[in-house]
């Protein structure tokens, strides 16, 4: 029980004090899980991250689940996962409630009109960063172009696109073998 309590506190803290998700959370993971609590080693953290990137879902949550599972199996995984999402649940719902009541305020409306433009710039920058990481081979470039073409011409859903791409990777592996 005491162990589970400690796991909860660690991950609640990580959820509360990190901004941005993914790699932005790595320093706090390292400080809390490796240096302070010694739950995992540096190698394990890197492993969790690399696996977190090839399993579905939010990477930081995956790392929490992995670590919790390592310490105390399914119960540990459940507690760690719950603890890392709890701060988001509380903060976002309070904030969303406040923002909804302010929606008619003229200044808030202007601020959000500005934010909406700013966010697009952030998304497009992220696309460039991700593109450099994701598109390294001719095959990947061809896939990127195909998907873009399909999306613009036929409006496939995001899920269909991911399934098709996974299938393309599967077929390529069959051929490469």
């Amino acid at each position: 029980m005491a162990q589970l309590g400690k796991i909860f506190v660690s991950f609640f803290k990580i959820g509360l004090f990190t901004f941005g998700g993914g790699y932005a959370m790595m320093p706090l993971f390292r400080q809390e899980l490796i240096e302070k609590r010694k739950y995992i080693t540096e190698d394990e953290l890197i492993d969790y991250y690399s696996i977190g990137q090839c399993t579905p879902g939010v990477i930081a949550v995956n790392v929490a689940t992995f670590t919790g599972y390592k310490i105390q199996k399914v119960l540990g995984a459940a507690v760690a996962t719950l603890a890392i999402i709890l701060p988001s649940l509380l903060i976002i719902m309070v904030l969303a409630g406040i923002l909804n009541t302010l929606a008619d305020n003229q200044i808030v409306a202007h601020a959000f009109a500005g934010i909406r433009v700013g966010v697009i710039a952030l998304i497009l920058k992220e696309v460039i960063v991700l593109f450099k990481k994701a598109v390294a081979t001719k095959f990947q470039l061809a896939l990127f172009v195909c998907v873009l073409f399909l999306l613009f011409c036929i409006h496939f859903s995001a899920i269909t696109v991911v399934l098709l791409a996974a299938f393309a990777g599967f077929v390529k592996r069959l051929k490469d073998r």
């Binding site: 697009i120 998304i123 497009l124 598109v135 896939l143 998907v147 696109v161 991911v162 791409a165």
Partner: peptide, 25 residues
Amino acid sequence: EIMAAIRPAVVALILLAGVELLKLS
């Protein structure tokens, strides 16, 4: 190999969503 194929597709998805949102903003 499957992940290597999913990643470029996901980038294309985000790009398209970004462009759609851009038209609104």
